[in-house]
Design a protein around this nucleic acid. Structure first.
Length: 917
RNA sequence: GCGGGCGUGGCGAAAUGGCAGACGCGCCAGACUUAGGAUCUGGUUCCGCAAGGAGUGGAGGUUCAAGUCCUCUCGCCCGCACCA
């Protein structure tokens, strides 16, 4: 190991201990008494007081995506985002904001459960151990979290409220008229709902949390549902047992009701375009029409509904395709085709979703023998089934227009079905076959209407109106977004606060438990596996399942997403025992408090979380689910904003030194513990930010850490001279136990003096203040660090180093490398015989533009756009003077010889370009 | 296939349409040193002794001026993917 640049191994624990003992980073809620001595209270004149929300400074909520505490511990990707938010939190505190910067644990999850199945160790044990390790690692990095708000999703006091929110979902319905969630008792019942049993069915179908039968990958041998990723070639990944798609009873959340609002409100939040686009694609709004086809030779009124975005091509629909699972398949199939259809449906069911999509190269299908009647031509249209039509999208049935859809064309060609042109491409050259873009309708002439000659957009409109007028269709908007399957057959998740009962007629129905029995704790088990007959592990605890009143508990648990859907709300008031979050705390932290004066130069606070940083892997699911829950809570009056996360930034992945994704198998994983041991937390943090822009993917380079570490050594030596330091090092070697004492006895170098800075020194400092401040606002940490390096490079050459300049510089460094900054800040104050004011709450330095004014400027002179010379002119030079000086510049002359100056461009204070020919 | 992003020295990168390569790594040289994988100083896009020329994936264009704006094209990364 190289010689230590500075004693970070003493400095870092020292200040972490100091911050802990002082509760430096404690964020104060309205109505909380602030101790007399707390530095936040001192800064804002609130020490010893109990401020209302009006008396508190403006809020700033800076949030990290909380981690799953895995057994593997922290990897270098975690602290990337954490460092960025920590820097910003520290910066905002010094600007005068009341900063909420919390951390917690997304601690339900499969690994702990699998470990439990193998070892019998309760998942809570594993989870606690992992949390302890994560806590140690995160704290060693010196992040300024308010640990008094720490939470874990596995804590009963936390998941009590997760269950409570699920009850809110259960007890609500989405009113399509108001487009909002409302309490279930505002639901109105159709007139034919006369009995309580009928009303119940109607009510249960309307809830935001409801039971549905959805298609899942079921493995009989393993007795469990598998995720798509766990199914390979129609067999289970483990064991190779057959997997079939079968409907299963599942708790489902009606996120689709919010599709439009989730889409619309993206416009109100400050997220990257790519992220918003991912959410838009996921929601997948598409406008089109429902069209009804009468089934021929079937009971009157047997109709097949199809969804199409191209109703204008209805005349070209030469066949219909139902998904194999479509409910009408059985009844319309002719006896002659029954066997073929049965076999095909079996074949389709045996395929996983993966195979039906990615792996399916060849179209497959079967003819049902049935026909439908085209609503426009009255002609007979054959009905097929094929797995390229998905049961879960639209109506699960399509009208096939092979002339103008590549998938239909492929199918038609394979099965010899007719292809009829109904759209003429605008360009004569373009063949109509397979043309799917807008054009002009042709061959679209029926007994009751003609579309011929209409451009696609108009044809769509015309036919939709016509369909509506004859009751054979209507305009519709469809979404790719599906309702959210919310059940898991697992042990280590939140139990549902729901029980099942049996009605007098023998049918089963569910009921919610009352709020006051929450939390519903999972039962103790010896064996965490599913039951042999494939029921979830909770079903093993029969004494837990069966209640004295004869009802049974729900045995599914919630998915891991549940806890992470609302944790940002719990942080606002993490120890509240009577509410999910107190009203005053919620409104203080979520609504910008306009009354409070803003710190000078600070940005306007935003609603909700001011900054949320995390990885792209959560771009869709977590962020969509959390937005959904938030909107429900908003509708029901529990939160104040329609969106939770106002600004969101995705940090880029950190790759291994070999430019590959870090992984155990590649052996390129960097362990933060090792980096900290050699370089310290300050250097680690600084390097993570110096690598490049926060959002970019970038490779790790240990040499690079050494580089910023060297920079911190230079900062140290800016204050401490080398002789003193050598002496210190030697003393420490001789008597390691007295290190703290030796550190406290260190004195600044003799050239560090309490003198007035020179103009050049002030200019260097204020250039740095300006750059660092602007870059922090733009989250450009890498260039802010480079500005500090430039300052230090310059200051190293100074013969006298004014204390005031060094102190101000340390304030700039503090958000990035807080331990070193604290140590030197303290040392400089001690040496001056002054008490050290809190660095955390010292007001952020303002730069003085007057100090940055130059009296002369270097002006590049170009001839025909090429640089020829740089001239020095007085800063006050007029354009005419600039032009004259440029034309006379010595090195410019050869390039003007024999040419005529056509034009001279003068960019004031910037550049002169001479156009000559 | 669709959507989003990115291509700049040996490497990580920087540049409101105005001196391309700041800052750092690496490398080269010097100083101090018993020593250097410490520190300090200087140099470092490429070609050229130099004057100078070339240069931001490629080809065009707009402009006095393009890494930056426009068109086409190639390559890489990420997301979605039979969504009718």
């Amino acid at each position: 190991m190289a010689r230590r640049q500075y004693p970070f191994h003493v400095i870092e624990p020292k200040w972490q201990q100091f911050w802990r003992s002082q509760s430096t980073f404690r964020a104060w809620n309205p109505g909380e008494p602030i101790p007399e001595a707390h530095p936040f209270g001192q800064r804002h004149g609130l020490g010893g007081r109990t401020p209302s929300k009006e008396a508190l400074p403006p809020k700033c909520y800076i949030l990290d995506m909380f981690p799953y505490p895995s057994g593997a511990g922290l990897h270098v990707g975690h602290p990337e985002g954490y460092t960025a938010t920590d820097i910003l939190s520290r910066y905002r505190r010094s600007q005068g904001f009341n900063v909420l910067h919390p951390m917690g644990w997304d601690s339900f999850g499969l690994p702990a459960e699998q470990y439990a199945i193998q070892t019998g160790q309760h998942p809570r044990k594993t989870t606690e151990r992992n949390i302890a390790n994560f806590t140690r690692q995160i704290q060693s990095l010196g992040f300024s979290y308010d640990w008094s708000r720490e939470l874990a999703t596995t804590d009963p006091e936390y998941f009590r409220w997760t269950q409570w929110i699920v009850l809110q979902l259960y007890n609500s319905w989405f009113n399509p008229t108001t487009q909002r969630a409302e309490p279930i008792d505002t639901l109105t019942y159709p007139s034919d709902c006369t009995s309580e049993a009928q009303r119940r069915v109607h009510r249960d179908a309307a809830r935001l949390a409801f039971v549905s039968d959805s298609l899942v990958n079921w493995c009989e041998e393993l007795g469990t549902v598998l995720a798509n990723e766990e199914v390979i070639d129609g067999k289970s990944e483990r064991g190779g047992f057959p997997v079939v798609r079968r409907p299963m009873r599942q708790w489902t959340l009606r996120i689709t009701a919010y599709a439009e609002r989730l889409l619309q409100d993206l416009d109100s939040i400050d997220w990257s375009d790519s992220l918003k686009e991912m959410q838009r694609n996921w929601i997948g709004r598409s406008e089109g029409a429902l069209v009804e086809f009468e089934v021929a030779d079937a009971p009157v009124g047997t109709r097949i509904q199809v969804f199409t975005t191209r109703p204008d091509t209805l005349f070209g629909a030469t066949y219909l395709v139902l998904s194999p699972e479509h409910p009408l398949v059985q009844s319309i199939t002719t006896p002659a085709q029954a066997e073929t259809v049965r076999k095909y449906r079996e074949f389709a069911a045996s395929k996983s979703d993966l195979e039906r999509t990615e792996l399916a190269k060849e179209k497959t299908g079967a003819f049902t023998g049935a026909h439908s009647i085209s609503p426009v031509t009255g002609g007979r249209v054959p009905i097929w089934i094929a797995d390229y039509v998905l049961a879960s999208y639209g109506t699960g049935a399509i009208m096939a227009v092979p002339a103008h859809d590549s998938r239909d064309l492929e199918f038609a060609e394979k099965f010899g079905l007719p292809v009829v042109q109904v759209v003429q491409p605008p360009d004569e050259e373009t063949p109509w076959r397979g043309f799917a873009d807008p054009g002009t309708a042709v061959n679209s002439n029926g007994p009751q209407l003609s579309l011929d000659g209409l451009p696609t957009a108009e044809a769509k409109k015309r036919i939709t109106e016509w369909l509506e007028s004859v009751g054979r269709g209507r305009k519709t908007i469809n979404y790719k977004l599906r309702d959210w399957g919310f059940s898991r057959q697992r042990y280590w998740g939140e139990p549902f606060p729901i029980v099942w009962k049996t009605a007098p007629d023998g049918s089963r129905y569910h009921e919610a438990l009352s709020e006051d029995v929450l939390p519903v704790l999972p039962p103790a088990l010896d064996d965490y596996k599913p039951t042999p007959d494939g029921r979830p592990p909770l079903a093993r605890a029969t004494d837990w399942v069966d209640l004295t009143d004869g009802s049974q508990r729900e045995t599914n648990t919630m998915p891991q997403w549940a806890g992470s859907c609302w944790y940002y709300l719990r942080y606002l008031d993490a120890r509240n025992t009577s509410d999910l979050v107190g009203r005053a705390a919620e409104s203080y932290w979520m609504i910008p408090n306009g009354a409070a004066p803003l710190p000078p130069g600070a940005p306007k606070p935003s609603p909700g979380v001011d900054l949320y940083v995390g990885g792209t892997e959560h771009a869709v699911l977590h962020l969509l689910y959390a937005r959904f829950w938030h909107k429900v809570l908003f509708d029901l009056g529990h939160v104040s904003t329609p969106e939770p996360f106002f600004k969101l930034v995705n940090q880029g992945l950190i790759l291994g030194e070999d430019n590959q994704k870090m992984s155990k198998s590649r052996g390129n994983v960097v362990n933060p513990d090792d980096v900290l041991r050699e370089f310290g937390a300050d250097a680690f943090r600084l390097y993570e930010m110096f690598m490049g822009p926060l959002q970019d993917v970038k490779p790790w380079n240990t040499q690079g850490v050494a580089g910023v570490y060297k920079f911190l050594g230079r900062v140290w030596r800016l204050v401490i001279d080398e002789a003193t330091e050598t002496e210190f090092e030697q003393s420490c070697t001789v008597e390691p136990s007295r290190v703290a004492e030796f550190l406290g006895a260190l004195k600044p170098a003799a050239i560090v003096r309490d003198v007035a800075p020179t103009p050049a020194q002030l200019k260097a400092l204020h250039t740095c203040i300006k750059k660092v401040t602007e870059d922090l606002e733009g989250l450009r940490f890498n260039t802010a660090i480079s500005a500090m390096m430039i300052f230090v490079n310059e200051a190293t050459g100074w013969e006298v180093r004014p204390v005031s300049v060094l102190r101000t510089f340390l304030q700039l460094l503090a958000p990035f490398s807080p331990h070193l900054a604290e140590e030197l800040w303290d040392l400089l104050h001690r040496a001056a015989g002054a008490a050290s004011p809190s660095l955390t709450y010292a007001p952020w330095p303002a730069f003085d533009p007057a100090l940055l004014v130059e009296d002369s400027l270097e002006i590049p002179v170009q001839v025909n756009g090429k640089l020829r010379e740089v001239i020095r002119v007085p800063a006050a030079a007029t354009n005419a003077e600039l032009e004259a000086a440029a034309l006379q510049a010595e090195k410019v002359q050869p390039f003007l010889a024999g040419k005529t100056v056509r034009k001279v461009i003068v960019v004031p204070r910037k550049l002169v370009n001479i156009a000559a020919s």
